[in-house]
């Protein structure tokens, strides 16, 4: 494993605080849905910072997509969300992690649960699921502050609107919902999970990702509801 040169191919705003960044990485061997990479920035005096970012894209090819949400006062994320431009160079190491990964030959129904930027590895899974024409059932729950804070919202809505029941999207808003939103506003709790996620009887493979506190709360509720802990895979992004 070694650091590879990456060039920013495009950067596109996803929300007020998040950006999609396309990287061209010569020699990138492709990646599975859900994997991440390490990204290294070097300042002119040699100072370096390394952070992990999930890959929003999946499959072969040397062009990959990241989705980065700005952490206020952070060292790396504000640079990626606000400063980086097409043509800029940085280094990446990957693809990384074989655990938090969806394999297209897995026939199980899948429940994806993402908070904030935790949507990033999950959209890679949803994209891989569609690209493979897989017939397994995918259900996705996103937790976001407001409707304007959902990463990849147009794409998720389009997937949701596709006829058939292969993909279904639910959103829980923690601060403010759309007008006339019939459901409670607030953190994902047991009731919200029971309302929006696949039942225990489906024995779904579950992927939970996002801020550490979110992941731990959701995973605890899922176990309390009766899901087998061995069916729940988690990835903690840090923060509160």
């Amino acid at each position: 494993m070694s650091w590879r040169l990456a060039t920013v191919g495009a950067a596109m705003r996803l929300t007020d605080s998040a950006r999609s960044i396309r990287l061209d990485v010569p020699g990138w061997p492709g990646n599975l849905a859900g994997q991440h990479l390490d990204l290294r920035l070097t300042a002119e005096d040699g100072y370096q910072a390394v952070r992990s970012y999930s890959i929003a894209s999946a499959g072969p090819g040397e062009s990959i997509e990241l989705g980065v949400d700005r952490v206020p006062d952070g060292e790396v994320s504000p640079y990626l969300v606000d400063d980086v431009m097409t043509g800029d160079q940085l280094e990446v190491r990957g693809p990384l992690g074989g655990w938090f990964v969806w394999h297209e030959d897995d026939p199980s129904p899948v429940q994806l649960i993402g908070g904030g930027s935790g949507v990033v590895p999950l959209i890679a899974m949803a994209r891989a699921h569609r690209a493979a024409g897989a017939t397994s059932r995918f259900r996705m729950l996103v937790s976001a502050r407001t409707p304007e804070d959902v990463l990849f919202a147009p794409e998720l809505s389009a997937l949701d609107a596709t006829p058939g029941d292969r993909f279904a999207l639910d959103v829980v808003y923690t601060r403010r919902g759309p007008e006339d939103w019939p459901f409670p506003i607030g953190r994902v709790d047991r009731a919200a999970l029971e309302r929006t996620t696949l039942p225990v009887s489906d024995s779904p493979a579950i992927f939970v990702c996002g801020p550490t506190g979110f992941v731990e709360t959701v995973a605890d509720h899922l176990v309390a509801i009766g899901h087998d802990p061995d069916r729940i895979k988690t990835e903690r992004f840090g923060g509160a």
């Binding site: 920035l41 070097t42 100072y47 640079y79 400063d83």
Partner: peptide
Amino acid sequence: AVISRGFGGRARRE
């Protein structure tokens, strides 16, 4: 390592 344009990192001095 390649230098990333405009990356400063945490405040520090020579």
